[in-house]
């Protein structure tokens, strides 16, 4: 398999607490694979997703390399993206699919020559005072554009959709911006996408607002927007964690189907090892910002090399879980 993204020695430190969220993480994302990244809170799994998407805020210290190997068609002639100035510390990343949309609309307005690639400067490190070295432009131009080359699905669809914009327009905006469709074509595309994510009453849903939909339906809309520009890579960051078990299973099978149909690469971020295993070809286990173990799903489940992976597996309570109250004298 060919490598889509090579991550080497990636380190991320948030200034707000000075804690290293990622410490020297190296891994390859293979083209067309479904890679799960699992870990508990504070493991750095979401930081890794944001770094790959180029969504980390400007003030965040980033070290290491990320090399993309996109097909020639992608990323070659399109304008570089703008990194929206949104800070994870203010929790605004979660509040916007607008990440891609915001970036896109600035480009759409044209004439903004200060555009930079999401990771340019960020990736090459910056001094304490905020001065930055730009990465070589050859590398910068090959960086994928969020929204066009990378689709991102966040945990909470209520806050990732714009509450005052009709559903159809939110999806069409992505197609309009990145595929350069007319609005009429983009709306038609949005309707097709709503059908692909299996939402009912297509015409009514196009004109509906997010509050009129259930949590699961909203996540379907967020997924439709994420794949609207036919990205090579789809990142789902705890995309089913806020949903109930039944809706979660539906969304996971939707993601599985869309990834297969479009030949996308999937990065699936989750705290749930069983859920990750149900979807992924390979699983990466993070703990305290370090990559503990990376392997084929079967190997991770049946022959984990690291004690922490074994502990995560043992802590899982499945439908075959032994009742705790039957165990006598088990330590608290």
């Amino acid at each position: 398999m060919t490598v889509l993204l090579s991550i080497r020695d990636l380190s991320v430190r948030y200034q707000r607490d000075g804690v290293a969220a990622l410490k020297g993480v190296s891994l390859d994302v293979l083209a067309g694979e479904r890679l799960a990244i699992i870990g508990e809170s504070g493991s750095g799994k979401s930081t890794l997703a944001l770094a790959v998407a180029g969504l980390l805020a400007r003030g965040v210290e980033i070290g290491g390399r990320m090399d993309w190997f996109l097909p020639a068609s992608a990323g070659a002639k399109a304008p570089l993206s703008v990194l929206p100035d949104i800070s994870p510390s203010r929790g605004e990343i979660g509040s916007s699919v607008a990440g891609p949309l915001l970036a896109a609309s600035k480009i759409g307005e044209g004439g903004d020559h200060s555009v930079i690639s999401p990771l340019e400067g960020e990736m090459s490190g910056r001094t304490e005072r905020g001065a930055k070295d730009r990465q070589p432009s050859a590398l910068a131009t090959s960086h994928p554009l969020l929204g066009r080359d990378i689709g991102f699905v966040f945990q909470d669809p209520s806050s990732s959709l714009d509450p005052v914009m009709p559903i159809g327009k939110q999806i069409a905006e992505v197609a309009h911006t990145h595929l350069h469709l007319t609005w009429r074509e983009a709306i038609a595309k949005a309707k097709t996408l709503l059908e692909r994510v299996r939402l009912p009453n297509l015409d009514a849903t196009l004109h509906a607002y997010p509050h009129q939909l259930s949590g699961g339906q909203k996540q379907r809309v967020a997924i439709a927007a994420a794949i609207a520009a036919a990205p090579k890579l789809l990142i789902a960051d705890e995309a089913t964690s806020a949903l109930d078990t039944i809706v979660q299973a539906e969304i996971v099978s939707l993601i599985r189907r869309l990834v297969a149909e479009d030949g996308m690469t999937l990065i699936f971020i989750s705290h749930d090892i069983a859920l990750a295993a149900s979807l992924a070809d390979r699983i990466a286990v993070l703990r305290h910002g370090e990559l503990v173990e990376l392997g084929e799903t079967d190997q991770i489940l049946n022959a984990p090399r690291h004690a922490y992976t074994r502990a995560l597996l043992d802590a899982h309570l499945g439908l075959d879980a032994e009742p705790l109250f039957d165990r006598q004298g088990s330590p608290a």
């Binding site: 078990t245 749930d272 069983a274 049946n302 499945g318 439908l319």
Partner: peptide
């Protein structure tokens, strides 16, 4: 109930619960 759900919703909940299949 979890081993042999009788209701439609019980069956759906059990079916939707992710399984960790280990040898």
């Amino acid at each position: 109930v979890i081993a042999k759900p009788q209701s439609a919703i019980g069956k759906a909940l059990v079916a939707a619960t992710p399984r960790l299949i280990r040898n």
